[in-house]
Design a protein around this nucleic acid. Structure first.
Length: 880
RNA sequence: GGGCAGGUGGCGAAAUUGGCAAACGCACUAGCCUUAGGAGCUAGCGCCGCAAGGCUUGUGGGUUCAACUCCCACCCUGCCCACCA
């Protein structure tokens, strides 16, 4: 533990002030330690998961335990969530607030590689450090129900989950072009490629064909979209998910290829101007291309050209793809909608994964337009803007016009003169009625690639068996085997895919010396013979293990299900738990899930949150759980920056929370972070700003210290050094504060809640305060500053713990004001303010206003022409 | 190129959703206290002006008795996504 210089930083017993008895700074280190120990010993935050009456599952996204230790960003997120949990707890809920570690994954592995330590050792070290730091935070964390994703007792169940998805037909293997990072030497998920570069190391990503495991998340696209309508999530997050799923309704046209028996299908989402189609493009790597050009004389040339395009793509990634390349295939389609014979071109910008990989093109798409111009392909615009001059430019093919909403159609006759946006639905009906096209829904969402050619993850629990293939192959009468799901091809030979038996889980990650990625496209596990060589669970013959591990996102896609069912270590229950056939206890799960509140970073708005929803839905469909949405409520917190910039080690602007825990205490750090701005928006950390909270707390401390306690009519009166006044008005402020703080905590507006508490406490220096009134402040402040409020609670002779007090209610009657300030405006400009009784009538108010000197001069002779009166608030006299 | 969020004092921000713009805090200024200091207390603090008063929520327009708030156009910043037809 770091030590600090008492002389310089924060003298606990302030020599200078002692003599004068003016201002005592509180010793946060001593106090926080005292309560930390006490709470831990008394298990103050423990809930009985089996019996809790009002279960409230409050979760924060668990951290990846980095070697750098807890980050202020972590602290911000956890405190924001913890305050919510404490608030819910004081409102009578049994709050379960667990904490764990997302310790598998490329982060840990890369760090270990750099340091030359083994990820296992490094992770253990990091977790130890994190746990220590987390315990200083003053959270409600239930450490008896913690998870660590890299522990066999956890990843055993991650593997179990894989097997369930496999059984349900949701896991399959296929060769796929994948994003490959030459530096990290691994496959990346689409999501990990930023601007054609690796998210982690920033090197150019290339494409590579590899056999990969996928999860069929696209089967759930519609449901993932649909449920967004009712879950209580922030609209921002929902929009991000909608965009990611990327549903677009379009049409598939089927067209015969001229002089051939072939038919091809084209997809378009913008088909309103279908009469403008003049050519067709096909993706250079489209599987149909070779068949299509079978009889074309320059077939070889076309294929090698296409090959070149694909290679260029791989080399350059998807970055500078502004240039268009293509080649004519020599073939035509007979356009079903009557545009005649349309030439088919191979085009660099056509991608085989989207739609059908073949598109009908027209003058009304930027890329089609540019491509056609380059190769001199005929264009025929049918969609025009209202503006005459612009229309001429479009007609002359000087300008590409793409407005499918506001443009006007010229053809066909049925739609001539119609706005494209209005015609859309009719066009759909028209082409379908004529049998020209089929409606098709296309999603941007792709299946989830979960294979990683890495070491630090859960081995995928699959075994490949040649012998089983020989026994069960189609020639021996068993048919309908699906490639990728039932069998795969390894080194040119078919092998049956045999899932590991559940009773044999976990497939332990072997301890190896060399965990570095091999760079061959295979996981480091592939070179561990004792791991690879195994026995087939079906035929008992020799077989090989899958050597890839699964994506870290799979670990975090189900952890919330595990927490409540984790049993304390070394107990009898642990042994019973190990007999569980599924990773959770059904009764406890029924009681606690789905989650009541989930708080985490917006950067996970799509990936983690979408995967989690998918896994939950799949588990429900398999009958393992009874709900299909994991989080009833989700709120995203913002980012904490330093001088406006994202904190990063390379910039050297990382704020280390430890330093501030020592200097100011956890309570001050907690409260300051929440004071910066609304939780959802984050904000900028300032070393100066934190002293405001520090002063606020020291004032409270000093106030309680110096207060003279005296019995008077059964009420303890606290008198500050300030003026003695009747403690009447402060009662109104108290109730107003209760109302404000309560509403702000409900809406996660912690910053304004703190401001309200400061205002309330500022009253204390002016007035006499009863113990009840002071206690109200302590209770309202306790979610923010759990240690300090507990200490003061005790110090003032209160019974029990401040944290076990019920959340105060406000009395609406106490809010009623006896005098209000009435704003008087003339022509909408404020000219005066008068104090009146809240019930003042319009007539009286006008009379009163006109009697004011400042108002009179605006109406020397005449009367106001018009009067607007907002009861108890405002009076506007209009002179015109 | 697309989506989302945002633009208010020197700074972080607030404004009951159309009704006193700048609450609360930081920084700053003056005074007090003093065992002289990274402490505390009192007061001040959007801009211009000695004042009366005038001006002020990215820019320009509009609606309204009244606009930070609603509508239209534009500019800027941040985040996320992008060969998605």
């Amino acid at each position: 533990m770091e030590r600090y210089d008492h002389q310089k930083i924060d003298p606990p017993s302030h020599k200078a002030t002692e003599g004068r008895g003016k201002m005592d700074r509180y010793n946060h280190q001593q106090i926080e330690k005292k309560w930390r120990t006490k709470w831990e010993r008394q298990k103050t935050w423990k809930v009985d998961l089996a019996k809790a009456k009002k279960p409230y599952y409050n979760l924060m996204m668990f951290p990846y335990p980095s070697a750098e230790g807890l980050h202020v960003g972590n602290v911000y997120a956890f405190v924001g969530s913890d305050i919510h949990g404490r608030f819910a707890r004081m409102r009578g809920n049994d709050v379960f607030e667990p904490m764990g570690f997302d310790s598998f994954g490329i982060h840990s592995e890369n760090f270990a590689i750099k340091q030359g330590t083994h990820p296992k050792e490094q992770t253990a070290k990091n977790i130890k450090n994190f746990t220590l730091q987390l315990k200083h935070l003053g959270g409600l964390f239930d450490w008896e129900h913690s998870v660590t994703t890299s522990e066999p007792e956890y990843y055993k169940w991650t593997q179990w989950l894989f097997l369930q998805l496999y059984k349900a037909g949701l896991a399959y293997k296929k060769e796929a072009p994948v994003e490959w990072c030459p530096s990290c030497k691994t496959v990346l998920a689409n999501e990990q490629v930023i601007d054609g570069k690796c998210e982690r190391c920033n090197s150019e990503v290339i494409q590579k064909e590899l056999e990969q495991w996928f999860f069929g998340i696209t089967k759930y696209a519609e449901r993932l979209l649909k449920n967004l309508e009712w879950i209580d999530w922030t609209e921002k997050t929902k929009i991000a998910q909608r965009n990611w799923i990327g549903k677009s309704e379009g049409l598939v046209f089927t067209a015969p290829v001229k002089n051939s028996k072939l038919h091809i299908q084209t997809f378009s989402a913008h088909f309103e101007a279908f009469q403008a189609d003049t050519f067709v493009v096909i993706a250079p790597d489209h599987p149909l291309l070779e068949t299509l050009i079978e009889d074309v004389p320059n077939k070889k040339e076309i294929l090698s050209f296409s090959q070149k395009i694909v290679e260029n793509r791989e080399k350059e990634g998807y970055v500078e793809e502004k240039k268009f390349e293509g080649i004519f295939t020599g073939r035509y389609i007979v356009d079903p909608v009557g545009n005649g014979d349309l030439p088919i071109w191979v085009a660099s910008y056509a991608i085989k994964e989207y739609g059908t990989g073949i598109v009908k093109c027209s003058a009304h798409d930027e890329r089609d337009f540019a491509f056609a111009k380059k190769y001199g392909i005929r264009l025929k615009p049918v969609l025009f803007p209202k503006d005459k001059e612009q229309k001429v430019r479009v007609e002359k093919l000087e300008e590409c016009y793409t407005d499918m909403l506001n443009g006007y159609l010229a053809e066909p006759n049925e739609f001539s003169g119609k706005r494209a946006g209005d015609a859309r639905q009719e066009v759909i009906k028209y082409v379908i009625r004529k049998g020209l096209a089929e409606p098709k829904t296309q999603y941007h969402l792709r299946d989830w690639l979960i294979s990683r050619q890495r070491y630090w993850g859960p081995p995928i629990p699959i075994i490949y068996c040649r012998k089983c293939w020989e026994i069960r192959n189609p020639k021996s009468g068993i048919r309908n085997l699906i490639v990728g799901h039932d069998y795969t091809i390894i080194e040119g030979k078919e092998h049956m895919i045999v899932p590991v038996k559940e009773k044999d889980l976990p497939v332990l990650l072997p301890d190896v010396e060399d965990f570095r990625p091999s760079g061959t496209g295979k996981s480091p596990l592939a070179s561990v013979a004792s791991f690879v060589e195994t026995t087939c669970p079906e035929c008992k013959g020799p077989a090989k293990r899958e050597t890839d591990v699964s994506d870290t996102f799979l670990d975090s896609a189900w952890y919330f299900l595990r927490y409540p069912s984790v049993e304390a270590k070394n107990s009898v229950l642990e042994i019973r738990n190990s007999k569980l056939e599924i990773p959770w206890n059904q009764q406890i799960t029924r009681r606690w899930l789905p989650l009541d509140m989930y708080i985490g970073g917006h950067e996970h708005a799509v990936l983690h949150l979408l995967y989690t929803r998918f896994i939950t839905m799949a588990l429900k469909d398999m009958g393992h759980i009874e709900f299909e949405e994991p989080f009833k409520k989700f709120r995203a917190h913002g980012l904490i920056t330093k001088e406006g910039a994202k904190m990063s080690k390379s910039k050297g602007n990382v704020v280390n929370p430890d330093e501030y825990f020592v200097k100011y205490g956890a309570d001050t750090v907690r409260t300051y972070l929440m004071f910066i701005g609304p939780l959802g928006e984050g904000g900028d950390w300032s070393d100066k700003g934190i002293v405001g909270i520090s002063r606020f707390f020291n004032r409270l401390w000093s106030f309680a210290e110096n207060a003279q306690l005296q019995k008077r009519a059964e009420t303890l009166l606290l008198r500050s050094s300030g003026v003695l006044a009747q403690g009447v008005e402060i009662e109104a402020v108290r109730h107003r504060t209760i109302k404000k703080v309560t509403e702000d905590l409900e809406g996660l507006r912690y910053n304004t809640a703190i401001a309200a508490l400061m205002e309330y406490s500022n009253e204390f220096s002016k007035k006499t305060v009863t113990l009840d009134q002071f206690n109200a402040l302590l209770i309202l402040l306790s979610p923010f500053a759990p240690h300090l409020t507990e200490e003061l609670w005790e110090k003032l002779g209160n019974e029990g713990s401040v944290h076990n007090q019920p959340w105060p209610e406000y009395d609406p009657k106490a809010l009623e004001e006896k005098v209000v300030r009435l704003v008087i405006q003339v022509n909408g400009k404020v000219r005066d303010v008068v104090e009146v009784s809240p019930g003042i009538k319009e007539k009286e108010a006008v009379a009163l206003a006109l009697a004011q000197e400042k108002i009179q001069k605006w109406f020397p002779t005449k009367k106001p022409k018009n009067v607007v009166f907002v009861k108890g608030r405002l009076l506007n006299l209009v002179s015109y």
